[in-house]
Simulated scan of single mutants.
Amino acid sequence: MTAFLSHLNMIPYQVFASPAASIVLPITLGMGVGFSTAQTTKSTYAQIRQPPLRPPAAVFGPVWTVLYGLMGYAAHRAYVATSGPLPTYLSQQDVRALYSLQLGLNLVWQPLFFGMRRPALALADILALVGVNGYLTYSLFQVDEVAGWCFVPYLAWLSFATYLNAAVGYLNEWDISDSTLAVRAVKDKRM
């Protein structure tokens, strides 16, 4: 099914075989990306024009920690479910490839949006991420219902995050560079 993605199996199979490693890996990688862009993220988040329904900045860390844990556990369950002698909808290689692809797309979003300050590029990334995760969620339900349900909150949050990304891009005219935000802040103070 996803043979053309087989080169994306960047995560060792031992990670998928262990429930603890499957959970800890995405949490650790997500925290690493978060901490590496924390200063830029905080200052940019405070300066950009925000859409309605935006959550407080403090919500993102706990939500992503839970979602990363759920996605890791789902990957473990799907990997184990596809290890039997009976043919399944996905192979272990498919699970590893799709999961690796979605995790990679997930981890580059924050550097694209907050690091490079490219909301349009980040929107393209998150749209691809939603598409891959829509397919992955559907596929997980075919091999392990618990794994599928573990991805549902993640897919819901990604949909909400897509709204936030698009709305921030639109409200800030797709430019959240330092120079543009500084000029905008001066204009807003005058009004």
Rank of each mutant, 00 (worst) to 15 (best):
T2D: 08
S6E: 12
L8W: 13
M10N: 04
V24E: 02
P26A: 03
I27Y: 07
T28W: 05
V33I: 12
F35W: 09
A38M: 13
Q39C: 06
K42P: 08
A46F: 06
Q47T: 06
L53F: 15
R54P: 02
P55R: 08
A58W: 09
G61K: 06
V63H: 00
T65S: 14
Y68C: 05
G69I: 13
R77A: 06
A78H: 02
T82Y: 06
S83T: 05
P87E: 14
T88I: 05
T88A: 15
Q93C: 01
D94K: 05
D94E: 09
A97G: 11
Y99E: 04
Y99F: 14
L105E: 11
L105I: 12
N106Y: 10
P111H: 00
F113I: 05
F113V: 03
M116T: 02
M116D: 09
L121I: 12
V130Y: 10
L136N: 07
A147S: 13
P153H: 11
F160I: 07
A161F: 07
Y163V: 03
L164H: 03
N165A: 13
A166K: 06
Y170N: 11
Y170F: 08
Y170K: 10
W174M: 07
I176A: 05
S177D: 10
A182W: 03
A185H: 11
A185E: 15
R190D: 15
